[in-house]
Each structure stands twice: as structure tokens, then as C-alpha cells.
Write a protein that binds this DNA or RNA. Structure first.
Lengths: 243, 243
DNA sequence: AAGTGGTCTAGACCACGGA
DNA sequence: CCGTGGTCTAGACCACTTC
């Protein structure tokens, strides 16, 4: 492409933005292949190398994945809770995926903390989505996600029940939002009476609290999740880095 | 470079390996600039683009950093504990770096867990390095790192006292080892009597336990750290992703 | 065999940092 | 101003997947 504008934003980032825009319009479904690199390059008037670098950005962000010789595909949406795994403590080698189960939706008012996390005013309406976490067959924790109601006016129990409230997918498919994790915080806390009851915990057993904040591609906070985990039998493994 | 070998390993990875070898020989000091990309490319008989990709790998691993217009530099060694920050709970925006203070070295025998984490036999001699963690002025936690004695025969209190036991730096400078974090696990636990005493904790207050395993560039486990954190006033933030 | 991602080159130009 | 990293191109070839 012949340059005709000041390169304040590199071409490959502009190209990445344009491909992202097409993704947000659901031009391709989950798992579907994009046009090949040369085709995309031609469509967006850049060289293959530049388009490749643009796709690198989207692959890095987890939106796309590649298979050599086969193509570039739209990645499946993993719910941020579901990406992690749990390790049985008796033998650290045994890892299991964490699964979740949608159990409730409520409209509440933002308390001080949520107002600060989500950059809204205190008292603003926010959705509160409650899910149970399981590992193997046993109850592992409780996750509560908060989203500003203003950005998700059409959220409903029906929408959440489809796909078992995979929030990442719902944000992508229904609202054109691609979420990335910006910050995580961990604490050890003693559970409240409510949590003890829901999670069938013994008295005096501490819980792992995990707070995560997710942003959209513009850097605006969109989701804040508070997860309470019963780490008697399993530890929480946010990632395992392969060699 | 004219190709003359089967490309089982891409050229840019070969180049990265060779630059890594030079780093391991301490050819350049921490903070020092490497030769520029063209110079390095010439030295290793590849094009600038390929050398750039090789350096990308090392930058990605945190071994090097770049400053546009200035050069490519050897990164400072951050101890894996020190990389994280802590957030004051009253206002999640306030972040502070965690600092550590070396307090002890002992030679112990690997228990079942350490044997499994470090891939050594049970009872093998391992170093146990103890450090206190502080945030602001207050005591925040206790870190115990375990390393197989066989790989670090010359470890000594004197060595650890220099540089306040920055294990990443010691491994790099004194043993030519570049460590990367492979796995992390979190749990909430009640502290033992020892830990309560050392960390001046109140009774009945839970602790955040963080276990990390570090590998060398060959993928062998080298270090296992167990960190106990008092998360009454501060939460533990492993990272904050910038936009 | 055809089509895809993955690597590599040589050469060009841009944007930033420091003297 | 020069030297550095950062971007971009056009064209080539390799390695893998799919048919």
C-alpha cells in the first residue's frame, strides 16, 4: 500500500482494527476460517507480511487461532472463569478444568466498590450474575459477575440460559464486545453465612477470594467478577505455561 | 543467509538461542545495550528482519527490553516475588510494589511435595531460602524458596546477602540460568503457629498461599516457592495489563 | 497436487532519542 | 544531525493439511 497518511498508527494496527470490526459484525462464526492471509491482505490493501502482523495481534489477544496449512479461525469464547484449572492437592500433577453453572440474575445498585471498578456512579443499576463453580463432581466455588446495566439493556435470564451464561461469548455475540482481563486480585477471607450455606462449607474454613476486572477493546471496564473458592481439596491454577 | 540445512528449527529461533548463549556468558551487563539489530544480524548471518524476530523472542521472555531510537538492552532481573504488586483494599486504585528481605538459608531434605515439584528424589538435599515480604512499611508475608542443592553447589549466605537474595538475578549471574514462571497455584489456608509468630498475625485470620514453580530455558524445574500472604489490608495483584 | 500458514530476504523509509 | 528501533513491501520458498 502506498503511504498517504502520517503513520501515527502503524498500518498493521489499522488492519487489525478493521479485521476486528468485521469480527464484531459476526462476519464469521466461531470456529469458521477467515479468508487466507493473501486474500485478507488484498482486501485491506496491505502486503501479506503486514496482514500477518495484524492477525498476530488478534491471535495474541485470543480472538483468532491458526493451524498451519489449514487456515486462520475464529477462536471459541472461553469464559474467564472457565479458562483456569484446578489442581488436586494430594498430587499436584492432577489438573481438572473448572466448569460453571448459571444460577441467577438480579438487577442491583452499584456499591462503592463496584462503582469504582466499573467506573460508574454509586447506586447505578448493575446486573449481578451468579454462577456455581464445579471441579470434577464437587462444589468448588461461587462466582458473581457485575456488569453496568446501561451497556447491556437487553440482558435477560433467557439470554443467559443459552450457553449456560458464558459471559465472554454473550458479550461477543450479542453485544459485539471483546473482553480482555485487565487485572486480578487475590485474598484469603472467611466466608459469610450465605456463602457457607451455598457452598456447603465447614465452619472456620477460609476461602480464596479472586476479583477480576475485564475491559473492552477501548479499555473501558465492562465486567467485575468476585469469585469465592473453597480450596480445601483443590488449588486454583490461573495458568500453566507450556514450554 | 543462504539456506543449507533443513529448517527443522526456524532460523530466528536458532539466532535467539545463540544470542541467549551470549547472554548466559554475561557478555553484556544488566542495563547495557546490545549491538544494534543490523550488527547482530551480520554477526549471526541472518537478515535484520530475522534478527529482529529473534530479539522479539527474548524480549517476550523478559530477558531484553527495547527503547525506540536508543537500542536493545539487557533487562534488570526482577525477582518473581517482586514483580507483583499489592493493592490497598480501602481503595483498589492504590498499588504498591512488594519488597522482600532475605532472612535465612538452610539445607533441608526434600519432602514429598518438593520432590515432586522439583523432579528430584524424596530426601534429596535442597536449599531453603527464607524471605520476608513487605509492602509500604508493613509486614505482608513470608516466602520460602526451594532449589535442588545439586544444581547450586556454591550457594552461600554471602552470595544471598549480596543483592538481598534476588534469586532470579543470582541464577542468571552466578549460574547462567534464565528462569521463567511455569505454574502458579493459589489457596486460602490457616497459618501455623510459626507463621503467626513470624508475621505477627492475629488468631483466626486466614492466609493466602501462593505456590510458584520456575523452570530454566530447557524446561527443567529449578525453583519452587511457597508464599504466605497476610491479605487483611492488601490484596495480591499478580499483574495489571496495560491497554 | 493445491492451498494454507510460516519463514526469510534485501532494501526502503519512518519516528524517536541523544549528542 | 546521526544512529537506533519500528514498519512495510514484493517476492521467494518451506512445511503442513486437505483432498
Amino acid at each position: 500500500m502506498i503511504k498517504n497518511k502520517p503513520h501515527s498508527v502503524p498500518l498493521y494496527r489499522q488492519a487489525a482494527q478493521r479485521v476486528l470490526a468485521r469480527l464484531q459484525k459476526n462476519e464469521w462464526q466461531e470456529g469458521e476460517a477467515l479468508p487466507n492471509e493473501f486474500e485478507l491482505a488484498t482486501q485491506h490493501q496491505v502486503s501479506q507480511g503486514t496482514m500477518r502482523k495484524a492477525l498476530d495481534v488478534l491471535v495474541e489477544e485470543g480472538l483468532l487461532f491458526r493451524r498451519q496449512g489449514a487456515g486462520t479461525f475464529v477462536a471459541a469464547c472461553l469464559d474467564s472463569v472457565g479458562e483456569a484449572s484446578a489442581a488436586l492437592l494430594v498430587d499436584s500433577a492432577v489438573k481438572e478444568k473448572i466448569r460453571f453453572e448459571y444460577i441467577g440474575l438480579a438487577k442491583v445498585h452499584a456499591n462503592e466498590q463496584m462503582a469504582s471498578e466499573l467506573a460508574v456512579r454509586r447506586g447505578c443499576p448493575v446486573w449481578q450474575i451468579t454462577r456455581l463453580l464445579r471441579v470434577g463432581g464437587s462444589l468448588f466455588g461461587l462466582d458473581q459477575a457485575f456488569l453496568p446495566e446501561a451497556r447491556f439493556p437487553e440482558l435477560s435470564m433467557k439470554l443467559l440460559r443459552q450457553d449456560n451464561a458464558n459471559l465472554t461469548r454473550i458479550c461477543r455475540i450479542n453485544f459485539g464486545l471483546y473482553l480482555t482481563e485487565r487485572e486480578v486480585r487475590y485474598r484469603a477471607v472467611m466466608p459469610g453465612i450465605e456463602e457457607i450455606k451455598i457452598l456447603q462449607a465447614d465452619n472456620g474454613v477460609p476461602f480464596l477470594e479472586r476479583i477480576r476486572v475485564m475491559h473492552d477493546t477501548e479499555g473501558q471496564p465492562v465486567l467485575c467478577g468476585i469469585t469465592m473458592l473453597k480450596t480445601n481439596d483443590f488449588a486454583f491454577c490461573p495458568y500453566i505455561r507450556n514450554i
